[in-house]
Each structure stands twice: as C-alpha cells, then as structure tokens.
C-alpha cells in the first residue's frame, strides 16, 4: 500500500497506559511521518520505553489510538501481525539469541515469519551484516562478540525483517564508552538511508545530527516537542531545560 508522504506513518492520539493504578503514559500525542527521525529523551521512569513498546505491541495501551501504516493497533490479529513485521526494535540489552550463531539469529525471522528460503535469508543476512560492518563474525555466537558488535548484530537482525520503522530503546546505554560510537555510526547511516526511526537515547550529539523532531518526556507526558534547533537552545519548559542542563554537563 503506497503511503502518502504527507500522511503520518505512525499516529499516536491521546494514548494512556496504566500498570495497575500507576499511569505510565498520560494522553500522549505523537505523529511520525515516513522517513522522519524522532529522538525521545527524559528522566528515568518517564515512560519512554513504555511509549515505544506500545508502538510494536509489547505493551497494550488502554486509552486512545495508535495507528501504524494505516492500521489501528486494536484490530484483528492478522493485521496486527502484519504491523509487527513492519516495526523493528532494538533493545538496550541486545536480546540476541545466545544459542544461535549470528547468522541464525539473523535468518530465523525471515525464514519462519516471512517464509524466505534459507538461501534468500542467508543472502539478506550477509547484506545487512556488511551494512553493520561485521560480516566476518557471521559464524560466531553472540557471547564471542563485544557489546558493540552484539548491538550491531541486533540492529542487523531487525533490518533483516525489512521493517518500515525502527524503534531503538537506549541502544547504547549498556555499552562501554569506547563502543558507543560504532553503534551510533551504524544508526546514523541508517537514518541517512531514509529509515523512519524513533530513538530513545541520551546521546545528544547523535540527536543533534540526526533528529528531525525532539521529544522530552516526564512523568508519562510529552512535555516538550520541537525541532532540534529550538529544543537545544530555547526549550519552552523549565523541566526540559533542567534536564538538558543535567545531561549536557555530565
């Protein structure tokens, strides 16, 4: 289905999410256009992870609507599965499959859920391993790789599903400092290739370079949403200013 470039690929309206009595998201509104890069930041516990996890249905929202690529996330199971394969996700803890080689990590999804042949899946896996610059690690197990390499494998694993949207949840937070850049470089290249991305990250250098839209969350709400130029120089809210102060002078 061709998407009108002006219509949003993701449209989040008035979304609330509760964990028992605790409200993790409060009437959140967010639109993401095709190819747009959104960077989400905010203090711990502000609901950043919950927000992006709602987009790929790892969490269910209780109120409001989330529409991805024209399909509302409450409709039939079949259409939900269709959406699921269009949204890739990269986790803070990589979550690679430890008992499978890098190659098998990458080909499992394409073979089992997209019905590709082993050969097609292998070709695709090699293509994306080259993209993330570790084709030579194809036959190793995740534990034999450094953290940065593992996260790049995780990115390649998502890309092998050929998603239209990539979600990143603090992809560099679990990494040693010297490995952060190799992952950010891969993400920057992905951004330049035109992928629609929502990244939860506190890497503000990356955000400045890549983001079309900055989002600041606090206590389950979107407090500030603006383009990076304005966001970093003159944010409207005091909370956002304080937060930026804190992490930029860290």
């Amino acid at each position: 289905m061709p998407v009108d470039p002006q219509s949003p690929l993701i449209s989040i309206r008035d979304v609330s999410k509760f964990f028992d009595d605790f409200q993790a998201l409060k009437d959140v509104d967010l639109e993401v256009k095709p190819g747009e890069k959104v960077v989400v930041c905010g203090p711990s516990g502000s609901g950043k992870s919950t927000l992006i996890r709602c987009i790929n249905q790892l969490e269910k929202h209780e109120k409001g609507s989330i529409i991805v690529d024209g399909i509302e996330l409450t409709s039939s199971k079949a259409s939900l599965n269709a959406i699921r394969s269009k949204v890739g996700m990269v986790f803070q803890q990589f979550n690679l499959f430890p008992h499978l080689t890098v190659m098998d990590n990458l080909t499992l999804g394409p073979i089992r859920s997209k019905g590709l042949s082993k050969q097609q899946a292998d070709d695709m896996a090699m293509k994306y391993l080259e993209r993330v610059r570790i084709p030579e690690q194809a036959n190793k197990y995740p534990r034999q790789l450094s953290g940065g390499q593992q996260q790049r494998v995780a990115i390649a694993r998502s890309l092998c599903m050929e998603p239209e949207i990539m979600l990143f949840d603090e992809p560099t937070s679990a990494l040693d400092p010297e490995m952060i850049n190799e992952v950010l470089e891969v993400m920057t290249e992905l951004a330049e290739s035109g992928m629609t991305m929502i990244c939860v990250t506190h890497e503000m250098g990356f955000a400045r370079k890549v983001a079309d839209k900055m989002v600041f969350m606090d206590h389950g709400e979107i407090v500030e949403m603006s383009e990076p130029g304005k966001f970093f120089t003159e944010p409207d809210s005091q909370r956002c200013q304080d937060f930026l102060q804190q992490i930029l002078h860290h």
Binding site: N56, Q57, R84, V87, M89, F91, N95, R112, S113
Partner: peptide, 15 residues
C-alpha cells in the same frame, strides 16, 4: 527479553 526479541521479529508463539 528473549520473548520480546522473538516478538519483534514476528515469530509465532510456537516458533
């Protein structure tokens, strides 16, 4: 995280 990663690459429950 293993379930979440499986979910994110669209694996069915059985797979």
């Amino acid at each position: 995280g293993q379930y979440e990663a499986s979910h994110s690459i669209s694996l069915s429950y059985t797979d």
